[in-house]
Design a protein around this nucleic acid. Structure first.
Lengths: 256, 256
DNA sequence: TCAAAAGTGTTTACTCTACACCCATGG
DNA sequence: CCATGGGTGTAGAGTAAACACTTTTGA
């Protein structure tokens, strides 16, 4: 980084006083997804101040001087959702948005993250004046700043990662049925999958899921009780679980 | 982002004077790859100043107040390589590195990029005092700052993207043979591929490559003259071209 | 006894792999 | 005429899609 700045040029000078030449604020923005009521939902907050007062936005906040962007993301996530135990949650860096005019007030560079969690509770508002809510993905157009783009990028990334990683289990609680796992795929991708083939594929991938010992089953549903599984220790999916509709034409994500 | 900072908490205050609360410098770091002499090479610069004086580092520099990280990356790329025509070059954001202590002098957040180009000329040093050179990947351990990690992440990403994108043509000049394309895969992945099968796979993917009109062939080699191809208009590869060695066990990249 | 959801089996088509083989050129 | 790299053909294994079918529960 940094000290490779050409010395002979009139760029930013090398120095040790940050306030003299660092007109950047660094923030994190979070696209937090969950599956509730069979729909993909996103955590949004309502802005209480200008600019974009009254508009929905992604949760986020400033990176503090002593923490990394990752730490800031985890901290904000805890604050915004009000959940103390974030252990089952998946958080990953998406990309950084740095257009000079993305915030009308000042130069803000934002590191965006995508997060996934099992059916999370109603957010408690995080001490923030404005509301925080789960909103169905797709029903929340015209977000503040460039958050529409961030949210779309995050959705692209999640959908793509379901194909070749075991990420889907992050949407579910510790024990789940294969039907629930299939619903995650169908919800995120917006396509129907063949149940027998889905089942075979998942079970054929070592380490994707493992049966709960004792042959536990989920009772209470309308049909035959389903066997319960946990997430295995695998992280990647080989071969990948490709989206049926996309065979032959996958759209290129902005980030990846 | 940003304005979702909880008002009641003692975090960074909301305000309009950047210098009052933005102790961040933002830089870009570039992992520039090329294939020369049948080997994967990386552009490195030698640092002339402390810290890490005399050590090799990735090229990069400060993001200026009026430009995005992407613009800064393109600008630095032009400066460091000394090439005026960067049109055939591929540049993509990798991820952002923001550990508080990654630069001993001050708080520096760096947006890392991966770049690929056809056999590029010797760098001219870019007006920088220190040297700039192509170095074989793998023979350049112990870089300055966290650049070892950035370089490894970039290599992981490139290797993974070759599987499911048409990225490989970015390593080649406008017209190339299928043998050269195969060499790119073999060089980056470090594995041998079956020529007949590679050929079929590439030609079976619509838009990956298209023959140069007129049936042009590359003469001068030792064997049969090879047909010339150009990059097509496709951007994704379906189905993917999987690494032979990895079937069944793909390591998880840090970023993706 | 019917609907709904879980779970199994089977057929067919396709794709991938490995390897054998021919072609054109330079030395 | 032989080494070298380009290019084609093909048999068998493996994989995936489609769909018929059985099982077990709640209403």
């Amino acid at each position: 980084m940094n000290a490779t700045v050409p010395e002979g040029e009139a760029t930013v000078p090398e120095g040790y006083d940050p306030h003299a030449f660092a007109p950047f604020a660094v923030t994190v923005d979070l696209a937090v997804f969950t599956v509730r009521d069979g729909a993909l939902q996103v955590l949004l907050v309502e802005r209480g101040q200008e600019p974009y007062a009254g508009r929905w936005a992604l949760p986020g906040g400033f990176v503090l001087p002593v923490e990394s962007a990752e730490s800031a993301a985890w901290r904000e996530l805890a604050e915004e959702t009000g959940i103390s135990d974030l252990s089952g949650l998946h958080l990953e860096q998406l990309r950084t948005y740095s257009e000079p005019d993305r915030d009308p007030r000042m130069r803000v560079v934002s590191v965006a993250f995508a997060a996934l969690g099992p059916d999370l509770p109603e957010p408690r508002g995080g001490g923030d004046a404005a509301r925080a809510e789960w909103r169905p993905y797709g029903s929340c157009g015209a977000l503040a700043f460039d958050h529409d783009m961030i949210l779309a990028d995050a959705h692209d990334r999640i959908g793509a990662k379901l194909e070749y990683s075991c990420l889907a289990t992050s949407f579910l609680s510790a024990e789940f049925t294969l039907g629930e796992l299939q619903q995650v795929y169908e919800t995120v991708w917006g396509t129907a999958l063949d149940r027998p083939n889905f089942r075979r594929k998942v079970l054929a991938t070592p380490g994707f899921v493992e049966p709960v010992p004792g042959g536990a089953r989920l009772t209470g549903g309308r049909g035959k009780p389903a066997a319960l599984y946990r997430a295995g220790d695998a992280t990647a999916l080989h071969p990948p679980l490709l989206r049926p509709a996309l065979r032959g034409a996958r759209p290129e994500g902005r980030t990846s």
